[in-house]
């Protein structure tokens, strides 16, 4: 068992992706503020042990493809005070990414006004 991913990376640098918008219980490395947001793959980082499994004592294999995804700050935050070219980068495991052309629900609305 090498633990390498079972498939090749789905995305490449420059691809647009949407972050899966969900709050499953468990250990997740996807911050809430980025869920449902659209970004661009900045680079492929390699394959890493899945923290969502490793966090519970499992081996986290096969490894998960990890990407750096870049977002426009004005897209993430409603009242962003800054330059329109300001960006934010995060690392995302492939199973949290959705191709932008796939049917996806609108970003979740806040429950309170």
């Amino acid at each position: 068992m090498t633990g390498e991913p079972l498939t090749d990376p789905i995305f490449k640098t420059g691809d647009q992706v949407r972050i899966h918008d969900s709050n499953p219980p468990g250990h997740r490395r996807t911050p809430d503020y980025i869920k449902g947001k659209i970004g661009v793959i900045e680079r492929y980082c390699g394959a890493f042990v899945n923290p969502e499994e490793s966090a519970y004592g499992f081996d986290g294999l096969p490894k998960k493809h990890l990407y750096r995804v870049r977002f426009d700050q004005t897209h993430i935050w409603d009242k962003y005070d800054g330059n329109a070219s300001d960006t934010l980068d995060l690392e995302m495991y492939e199973h949290w990414l959705r191709p932008i052309n796939a049917a996806a629900p609108e970003p979740r609305k806040a429950i309170v006004q």
Binding site: H27, V49, P51, S54, A55, Y56, G57, G60
Partner: peptide, 11 residues
């Protein structure tokens, strides 16, 4: 232990 287990316990 793993760092991920540690983080999970923190959270």
């Amino acid at each position: 232990t793993t760092i991920h287990e540690m983080r999970r316990c923190l959270e």
